[in-house]
């Protein structure tokens, strides 16, 4: 994909006038004019893809390092499993915690964080809110 900025060629006008347009296309092919919101969307998509690729590369490196440590005897088999924490909206986290508690008699903060792959501190805060809302209670 190529991006080019087309400035108006009129004499006496400042090059960066309101008529400046941005076009997207292939380097050797035709170009299509796009507006600013499309640029923002495309840029966001590019950043998202890059972040996903970086995350995958990091996890791969960590996995390889863990395998090395297991081979050298520094870690036991099964230890050091990589848990990728999820970042989800608070309301979704609340719902998932309530759904999880419906399946089990009782769970500890750590169990909830482990099962749902959420940050421990976030779990504690949300459980506190759910207790105040009267939806959950401490199990004896």
């Amino acid at each position: 994909m190529a991006v080019r900025i087309v400035y108006p060629q009129e004499e006496g006008k400042d090059e960066r006038s309101q008529d400046t347009t941005i076009e997207v296309g292939s380097v050797t092919g035709t170009y299509q004019r796009i507006d600013f919101s499309q640029i923002v969307y495309l840029f966001a998509e590019m950043v998202r893809e890059e972040v996903r690729a970086m995350e995958a590369r990091m996890i791969e490196r960590i996995d390889r390092r863990i395998d090395e440590l297991v081979e050298r005897g520094n870690l036991e088999e099964g230890e050091g499993e990589v848990i990728v924490l999820r970042t989800i909206p608070r309301e979704q986290a609340k719902k998932e915690i309530l759904d999880l508690l419906d399946k089990y008699d009782k769970l500890y903060y750590g169990d909830i964080a482990e099962q749902l792959r959420l940050d421990l501190e976030q779990v504690v805060e949300i459980v506190g809110e759910l207790e105040k809302e009267g939806k959950i209670e401490e199990a004896k």
């Binding site: 309530l98 508690l101 419906d102 089990y104 008699d105 009782k106 769970l107 500890y108 903060y109 750590g110 909830i112 421990l120 501190e121 504690v124 459980v127 207790e131 009267g134 939806k135 959950i136 209670e137 401490e138 199990a139």
Partner: peptide, 12 residues
């Protein structure tokens, strides 16, 4: 580091 005194929780 984040530590919490853990407790069992259940649905009400």
């Amino acid at each position: 580091v984040y530590c919490v005194i853990d407790k069992p929780i259940r649905s009400k």
